[in-house]
């Protein structure tokens, strides 16, 4: 593993499988009455959120706390960040406080790269979503969920077909997933109207289609991306209804999927837009377990970046805090 997790491209196949295997071990902690390991006791993890994202922030917070780390949450709202303090000064402040890891969510693509590489801090940097760029722990939790549901929870995703649908242009989830799932051997198909695909997407490690119906029958999993309604005002598509008709996953389309195929969504959902309520709540939907898996995967990432090489689970003599 590299020191930082900035992009899914930082993960080799072996790294990714190590994270997933570690997450599977750590997931067992969640089944215990006391959901806590002493692994990161005394280490300081900073949640640095320049963008509102309650679910990702809480997920990282839970992950760090279950590993007994001291967690400091630094949200842009109500802090000096919202008063115009620069990323550099914030970073220097965190460094002065002795942060061992900084989890950063930022509206500008590349902000985690700057934090990791500008020489402002020494700790590990974990990208929790940057601009239109990447969200690698989301990709890891999606890979975990796919592996659990399609591969018996072991190995990689070789040969599995994953269709990712929606606003690829503005989606860091799509970027991170395409890279990671391809690394793990899955066949990824991106489906979107041409206006919501980035220039150069033909060179990504995936297939690209404008036609959702054509790619459903083959898919082992369909991942729906959130489409923000303001895209409509920028003429990426004419109306929400037209988008929903052409690219939304409704009951009729779900019927055309094969028996075992699952439905995923990184949340938050626009019910009735990219996904209909009955699909979101159907038994094919693994959307809720994606959230659960998010905590395990983030524990694994924190553990591997901070905890070094000792085993993920406590040795018998270590015991569990009770």
């Amino acid at each position: 593993m590299k020191k930082h997790l900035l992009s899914s491209a930082d993960l080799s196949r072996e790294d990714a499988i190590l994270v997933l295997d570690t997450a599977a071990q750590l997931a067992q902690v969640a089944d215990r009455p006391v959901k806590k390991l002493p692994t990161l006791r005394g280490r300081t993890v900073v949640n640095l959120f320049f963008e509102d994202s309650t679910r990702t922030r809480i997920s990282f917070e839970a992950a760090a706390k279950r590993l007994s780390a001291d967690v400091i949450t630094f949200s842009a709202k109500g802090s000096s960040v919202s008063k115009g303090e620069s990323l550099k000064d914030t970073a220097l402040t965190l460094e002065a406080m002795g942060a061992d890891a900084v989890i950063i969510r930022h509206g500008s693509s590349g902000a985690p790269h700057r934090l990791a590489n500008a020489g402002w801090i020494n700790g590990s940097v974990i990208n929790a979503g940057d601009g239109l760029h990447e969200h690698p722990t989301q990709a890891l939790l999606d890979a975990y969920t796919l592996r659990e549901n399609l591969c018996g929870g072991v190995g990689d995703l070789a040969g599995k077909r994953v269709t990712i649908v929606g606003d690829v242009l503005h989606s860091r989830v799509a970027r991170s997933n395409t890279l990671l799932l391809a690394t793990l051997g899955a066949h990824v198909t991106l489906v979107a109207p041409p206006t919501l695909l980035p220039v150069g997407v033909e060179n990504w490690p995936c297939e690209v289609s404008y036609d959702l119906d054509a790619s459903l029958a083959q898919a082992d999993a369909v991942m729906m991306l959130r489409v923000q309604l303001e895209r409509m005002n920028d003429s990426y598509f004419p109306t929400a209804r037209e988008y929903s008709r052409r690219y939304g996953l409704d009951h009729r389309r779900m019927e055309s999927m094969s028996e075992h195929a699952i439905v995923m969504h990184p949340g938050p959902m626009n019910r009735g837009m990219e996904i209909s309520a009955d699909v979101a709540d159907s038994k094919r939907s693994v959307i809720v377990s994606q959230v659960t898996n998010g905590v395990s995967v983030r524990m694994a990432v924190l553990y591997l970046l901070l905890g070094g090489n000792s085993p993920a689970q406590p040795a018998p003599h270590e015991g569990i805090e009770e």
């Binding site: 693509s109 980035p198 220039v199 150069g200 060179n203 990504w204």
Partner: peptide, 11 residues
């Protein structure tokens, strides 16, 4: 170009 898409920087 291809890089702006990968880097998530508006083109």
């Amino acid at each position: 170009g291809e890089l702006s898409g990968i880097l998530g920087l508006r083109g």
